[in-house]
């Protein structure tokens, strides 16, 4: 297995799928000549040419719609948003068009397309550029939503997303592009709706996804030194969501903390807690706690930003609380 960055793992997935199927093309701002705002499409223009790696003006609504139209008649677009914050301008095409085209047409028109780009807060980018959107899109029937945390999952899920005949919202971690990890050699696909147990322990379950899975793994390693062993259930896709994996873990540990990057109200955690109370009501030894961004737009100042974000310290406090250790 080679160790590669999250960014390179994504590039590999794009390259392999572009090679595999000539209906696949990549479209978005700065994806071609500039090699991608975050360099995920580096080298692809040279290899595949301008019909398949397509630079657009700053027209999110327009090029997302172009993707939808092309998908309706048989192409397999990958629409890149420079960041998901700008996808708000295109949400009509994602939600009102792509997500329901098949249903509205009684199954006549499928939407084999991917909307992808960086999601979540980076560092000090302020309120309009620091947002995690997974619960918005997970809310919508007709969409699938991926939130890979590691290079291996990024590659495997992106390849699956491109091959999927449904519109997939693919949320890359803006802070993850430079992180490294092992990626299996050869063809590597990760199925949707299958969580990955990233750490194993009996004392508490931490259910998470995306960038927060890395935080959870670090927390697991730190707590292990104190003799506290936790399960880290990385959902990997939040729609479909692996309810079985969640129940399996909670039924074992009897305690759970749900950790996510986004806001609390109607966040992913709300849904996970609902599954837990339905599936594991009699197994719980403590109320489930949630760790998430504070209920404020992201502030710019370093100290306020730190205070607003979920982090290892907040996760550890919650774990100790559900274990009645605090």
């Amino acid at each position: 297995m080679a160790v590669v960055t999250y960014r390179d793992a994504l590039t590999q997935a794009l390259r392999e799928e572009l090679q595999r199927d000539d209906r696949v093309f990549l479209i978005g701002e700065e994806v071609a000549q500039y090699n991608g705002a975050y360099k995920v499409s580096k080298g692809l223009l040279d290899e595949f040419g301008p019909m398949r790696i397509v630079d657009t003006p700053i027209t999110e609504l327009g090029f997302a719609g172009v993707g939808v139209g092309a998908a309706m008649v048989g192409l397999r677009p990958i629409v890149e948003f420079m960041t998901w914050n700008f996808a708000l301008l295109a949400i009509d095409e994602v939600v009102n068009a792509a997500a329901k085209m098949r249903y509205m047409s009684g199954g006549q028109f499928t939407m084999p397309m991917v909307f992808r780009g960086p999601n979540g807060a980076a560092l000090q980018l302020g309120a309009q550029h620091s947002q995690a959107w997974e619960s918005w899109f997970a809310h919508i029937p007709g969409l699938k939503v991926c939130t890979p945390a590691t290079p291996a999952d990024a590659k495997g899920l992106l390849k699956s997303a491109i091959r999927d005949d449904n519109p997939v919202v693919f949320l890359e971690g803006e802070m993850l592009y430079n992180t490294k990890g092992e990626v299996p050699d050869g063809e590597h696909l990760v199925p949707f709706g299958v969580a990955d147990l990233k750490r194993e322990g009996d004392h508490c379950s931490v259910i998470t996804h995306g960038k927060m899975a890395l935080v959870a793994m670090k927390v697991a390693d730190d707590l292990a030194k104190e003799g506290i062993n936790i399960d880290v259930v990385d959902l990997r896709t939040v729609r479909p969501i692996d309810v079985e994996a969640i129940s399996r873990s909670v039924q074992k540990t009897n305690r759970a903390v749900v950790l996510e990057e986004g806001w609390e109200i109607c966040g992913m955690g709300s849904q996970v807690v609902d599954f837990i109370q339905r599936e594991c009501f009699d197994d719980l030894d403590a109320p489930v706690l949630r760790v998430h961004q504070e209920d404020v737009p992201m502030p710019y100042a370093k100290n306020l930003e730190r205070a607003a974000k979920p982090d290892a310290g907040k996760a550890i406090a919650a774990i100790k609380k559900v274990m009645y250790l605090d």
């Binding site: 914050n85 700008f86 301008l89 309009q128 550029h129 502030p299 710019y300 100042a301 306020l304």
Partner: peptide, 25 residues
């Protein structure tokens, strides 16, 4: 803006400066 806005979001009511905005257009 009390440090909450940052470079892209300069607002100043005193001078009717209605902001720096981060989303193109």
């Amino acid at each position: 803006s009390g440090g909450k806005g940052g470079s892209m979001h300069i607002f100043d009511a005193k001078t009717n400066f209605l902001g720096g905005h981060g989303i193109v257009g």
